[in-house]
Design a binder for these strands. Structure first.
Lengths: 156, 156
DNA sequence: TGGAAAATGTTTTTATGTAAACTAAATTCT
DNA sequence: AGAATTTAGTTTACATAAAAACATTTTCCA
């Protein structure tokens, strides 16, 4: 079975060479795969990973500066501006400029924003389970620990 | 030191809550971090991760279909078309339509493309080392194995 | 003080990536 | 054989993200 015609190339096997030893390459593939799964499961509820993550983090850390959150989530300032404006338009987020520093913008959830996060929290957390895919508990724990070390984000 | 004014928020600490247990979230952060490092080191040489990866893979697997490579690298067909055209314009890639199936397009590197890959191979591989960051050899090996399992890409 | 430098966001312009509809070629199914 | 389906890639129109230049406010320090 699966005899190759003379001169043809095996379509199923791709050689990656040293790319297979690249952390960045595998991270990229894994991440895109994860996004695919996210959209497949949660797009119907109108959730986008970036937006929902911001709402989530703002909910947990009310009053933080927009820029602080952006930096931590690796969202570029220009993009953060637009994203936050969308969330304000949607009525989920409040912007607040404090007197002692009128440059910076403090973010917090509106009641509607809180309600939105709460109502989707379950699906969001279930998704986190699903994306563990075929990893055992031990493998999962190890992976998280290593990614934590790589990213400097500790699990808190 | 670092006494907070009354009513202020600690700027340094962000709580992620259950997000900290999300594979997808950590993958996303790690991946963006990796891209940042890539651009920081290799942008000056005119390398983009996606483009160089395609050249690399085409070089290792001459004669594969454009679509096969795109699927494996998780590049969308529409984007692949444009990317390949850029590479053809640059003189790095040849498109080839075989008689036995005139729908599909076979890719291979031109001599110029080969030379380009060769001349940047070193920097590319050094970058792979750098992105291991603060991981030990053992941690690195484990991480790669787990990401391999997650993505279904085995190290070959 | 007061002017230079830094910090924080925003706007505009450009590049990158995606979705959906489309063309063309090959395959399948009576 | 010939219509219907599938496969491969392209095109167009749109969405997303990024870089660069900008405006404003604050800090630094000579």
């Amino acid at each position: 079975m699966n005899v190759q015609p003379v001169g043809a190339v095996d379509e199923d096997t791709i050689r990656f060479g040293e790319l297979g030893q690249s952390v960045g390459f595998l991270l990229r593939i894994a991440q895109l795969q994860s996004f695919d799964l996210f959209f497949q499961r949660l797009a119907s509820q109108g959730l986008k990973p970036g937006e929902f993550t911001v709402l989530w983090v703002v909910g947990l850390n009310p009053g933080l500066r927009q820029g602080t959150i952006a930096a931590r989530l690796r969202i570029k300032p220009a993009h953060m501006t637009k994203l936050v404006h969308r969330m304000v338009e949607a009525g989920y987020v409040q912007r607040n400029v404090l007197d002692h520093d009128r440059r910076s913008v403090r973010l917090s959830l509106t009641d509607k924003g809180e309600a939105f996060v709460q109502s989707h929290k379950q699906a969001f957390l279930e998704f986190h389970q699903a994306e563990r895919l075929n990893l055992t508990d031990a493998e999962f724990a190890t992976l998280m620990q290593l990614l934590g070390k790589l990213t400097g984000i500790d699990d808190t």
